[in-house]
């Protein structure tokens, strides 16, 4: 980060709300059919962070989820696997074991997820624990309270400290956009996260409504684009929460392509945090291959 000047985060980058929403509506009208639809569905499947973040999760549930990750649909063994599974730190070990022999990553939420209400010391401890357990990626959430107070340097330092604890492990920074109130704040939080060292920025924890929305994703993608122009570094994007339908997944892919270009259209730079989306993608893939509309009853729950 030596040659790069960190911008003044107290400056607000204005966002044209109407413009964003209109552009979004226009992109959503794009029709993707037949062969390209099938390719898009498979690409989306390969970008999923298959997620379970519930208080009732157990090792058994994780093993089941990992089986789904390895073999999304048994009758079609050639389908891509998902990119990663995303679990709580104490279940990372179970996930690691269940995914042995595959390239599927294990992502762990950490740093007092989902509220982020803890001392930095505890957050670092939490992060180190997840990494010790074998997590390949860490999903942390920013302190929204401090952010809304305008305490931007606190946010910056916290992310930087956690990134330092992560070392080579990928850090995804969750902005929890549903609590940031304005588009300008989303943009600002994106910038802070990226300049502080995030490898990925992510919309939501999935615990707060609204979770991922397309306008918010577009603003974050534009922040990534501007960051790339200023620093030459690529940062990944992960919308998470509330994406359930294959059609929406394709719309997100269009959005990425139109904002960042094809270089970002790989699981390395774009992920979708979801669980029920997987089965909808599978149903649409089977529909494309057989011409017959599918029923959820024929697809395994994760």
């Amino acid at each position: 980060m030596n040659a790069v000047t960190i911008p003044d985060f107290h400056q607000t980058i204005p966002i044209d709300k109407v413009g964003v929403e209109e552009r979004m509506a226009r992109l959503n009208k794009r029709s993707i059919k037949k062969e390209s639809k099938l390719q898009g569905l498979k690409l989306a499947l390969s970008m999923i962070d298959l997620t379970t973040l519930e208080g009732k999760d157990s090792e058994g549930k994780i093993i089941q989820l990992c089986n789904k990750a390895r073999t999304p649909y048994t009758p079609m063994p050639d389908l891509p696997t998902v990119a990663a599974v995303c679990v709580y730190p104490n279940l990372v070990d179970a996930a690691k074991k269940a995914l042995r022999g595959t390239t599927i990553k294990v992502a762990s939420v950490a740093a007092a997820f989902p509220s982020g209400m803890a001392r930095l010391k505890d957050k670092l401890e939490d992060t180190r624990y997840a990494i010790d357990q074998g997590a390949d990626e860490i999903d942390m959430v920013i302190s929204r309270g401090e952010f809304l107070k305008g305490n931007y340097s606190y946010i910056f330092d916290e992310i930087a400290a956690i990134k330092e604890a992560c070392g080579e492990v990928h850090l995804k920074v969750i902005l929890e956009t549903g609590e940031l109130e304005t588009y300008e704040n989303v943009r600002k939080a994106s910038d802070i996260a990226m300049y502080a060292g995030a490898d990925f920025i992510k919309t939501s924890t999935g615990k707060i409504q609204p979770a991922a929305t397309q306008p918010v994703t577009m603003i974050m993608l534009e922040a990534i684009r501007d960051f790339y122009r200023n620093t030459g570094q690529m940062v990944g994007m992960k919308p998470a929460g509330g994406i359930r339908k294959a059609k929406e997944a394709l719309q997100y892919l269009v959005l990425v392509k139109e904002t960042l270009g094809a270089a970002w259209l790989t699981p390395q730079w774009f992920r979708i945090g979801a669980s029920s989306l997987t089965n909808d993608l599978l149903m649409q893939i089977v529909k494309q291959e057989t011409g017959v509309y599918q029923s959820i009853n024929y697809f395994s729950n994760d």
């Binding site: 599918q294 029923s295 959820i296």
Partner: peptide, 8 residues
């Protein structure tokens, strides 16, 4: 055709 083939 589509109604009678629909798996659901």
């Amino acid at each position: 055709d589509h109604l009678s083939a629909h798996m659901d």
